[in-house]
Design a protein around this nucleic acid. Structure first.
Lengths: 326, 326
DNA sequence: CTGTTAGCGCATTCAG
DNA sequence: CTGAATGCGCTAACAG
């Protein structure tokens, strides 16, 4: 069932059918109704792919993330997908994992499918192998980075001011009398690096003792690392993390060791995910405004696609949320 | 840059270019190499949409879920996406929410994009408005239900035996001496109904006192409901839920009220999500094998798409996992 | 307001 | 092994 069939049944030309399909302007009311009737009767569904052939657009965008099971990616992706859907776009989801080859491969698939844009959410590392593919793609379609940044033309980024947030966390706890800080992080992403930088900056600004510890995004691994630290000589009275999950694990470990939180040690997570409400005591954390990030990314994209000028880089502030672990 | 440009540069016809693009059979080694060189040099990317025009396939499937932020949907979707990616398919993600209109609209968009199949994960309710659209779609492409079921031709389902799982939970706690059961559920999905049925069946089989309570998938709402129940006359010593999140909330409420878990009350969640490990004590729960469900769904789909026969309906057993709340 | 025509970029006959 | 010709279903001029 295509427009030819419809045209025949309605006794019009395919051009007319196409017109009513696209808003029905410049077509007489009576014939439009006639065509619409035939359309309904046959349960006609236009082929977006034939349409895309002409318009050069399938009205779909690709979103590239590490792993949608991670609550941060899930939240941002959801917000992007919803905003996009309102604009009539569909979303191709790509879970690349941490492997560069995978990422390159996904980017290639998206290129072939002629997506209207690609949004990379937090999935970019300081990986030189990605420079070329991304640069190449940006030559034909806009590329948006959510919590990432590439200094390339036709590239836009929306970031959360993670650095400032970490700085403020340290500052807050310092004013509460904390002097020995542990920072646990799980990823070398752009965002991860900024958080780390914020921590380092603040810690040196206030002349604090500190330790930095890399862990996997995994409850057990974080737990073990904390336990090891507890058994070592490093004394800490404040733990900051790059992810709620890590903070939850740290919290559990401390409690198991009979350490009072926030009595002896303060803990803060990051992202304000549901996890922060599932542990006891409830976790203080940083609201990285995942939903806003997604919405803003789409707003920018929409502007770019409409040919309007758009900020190449926008940064929004996180918000500290204090609950029971500080 | 299209095959015409390539053909010209390589001094061959477009047919030859097309051949090397599709495996390079029936083309002399030397000319194939020549074409491949031109391909590389120009950084040629074939247009999946033009290809789709002929082949009637864009190599993409649609996955329809309620909300990817829900850990259950995220896990299943992730597993589907990954399996599909290996087969060369991309995935269009749709978060429909609970609104029927939205669902119908998404189904329409997917139809227009000519996806090779649609996988509905747990997103189907006993909603008669969906019968027609789904039935219509199934006429042209296979439709797979993950934790759902429609008795339509060209329709396949993979389900977790939720009913049996709930039955076993009750049975287990009964043998531990529990006699007063509370079941809290959050959704009227196919799966939700089966869980409820399993609970009812077991509770009546063992002659137990029981109460059933609907809550929103939301910490606060569950908490309030439990508190209200605590203040009422209904006494319970076992809580079963349709979702880990609800169980976590129940757990927190009991603890706040000074009730010992599992001393006085046992609690079990459902899904074995990361949430079950974030609370204290760790939640006993049901492993609904989210990853397996996704893999199986894709395996079935692959068979159907290859023209091989496939089971219209497959059911796998859940596994109870006992931690610290039972 | 409506119809005719020409592609979009590719896969696929069918000849050679 | 290779090329010429055709069509997938639609949009977009361009005429009328």
């Amino acid at each position: 069932m295509n427009i030819y069939d419809i045209a025949k049944q309605a006794n019009v030309s395919i051009a007319t059918v196409s017109r009513v399909l696209n808003g029905g302007y410049r077509v007489k009311d009576s014939t439009r109704r006639r065509v619409e009737e035939v359309l309904k009767k046959n349960n006609y569904v236009p082929s977006a792919i034939a349409r895309g052939m002409m318009t050069k657009s399938m009205k779909t965008i690709g979103i590239v993330t590490i792993d949608i099971r991670n609550l941060y990616y899930a939240n941002v992706s959801h917000s992007i997908e919803q905003s996009l859907s309102i604009l009539g776009f569909n979303t191709i989801l790509c879970n690349t994992g941490y492997d560069t080859t995978q990422k390159v491969n996904y980017l290639k698939m998206l290129s072939e499918k002629k997506v209207d844009s690609i949004i990379l959410v937090g999935s970019i590392f300081k990986d030189p192998e990605l420079d070329k593919p991304i640069g190449h793609i940006a030559k034909s379609i806009p590329v948006i980075f959510v919590n990432g940044h590439y200094d390339l033309p036709n590239t836009y980024s929306v970031q959360c001011n993670d650095k400032k947030a970490l700085h403020e966390c340290v500052e807050y706890l310092y004013h509460k009398g904390r002097k020995n800080f542990l920072y646990m992080y799980d990823a070398d992403t752009f965002s991860g690096n900024r958080k780390l930088a914020g921590f380092r900056e603040a810690v040196s600004e206030y002349g604090l003792r500190s330790e930095i510890c890399y862990v996997k995004t995994d409850l057990q691994n974080s737990f073990d690392k904390i336990q090891k630290l507890l058994d070592s000589e490093f004394y800490f009275d404040a733990i900051l993390t790059s992810e709620d999950l890590i903070a939850v694990s740290a919290l559990q470990c401390l409690i198991k060791n009979g350490i009072s939180v926030p009595g002896q040690v303060s803990i803060m997570g990051f992202n304000n995910s549901i996890l922060s409400m599932c542990c006891t005591p409830h976790l203080s954390t940083v609201d990285s405004r995942m939903e806003d990030m997604g919405n803003i990314a789409v707003k920018i994209l929409h502007r770019v696609l409409s040919g309007e000028p758009a900020e190449p880089s926008t940064m929004i502030d996180a918000r500290l949320v204090f609950r029971e672990t500080t």
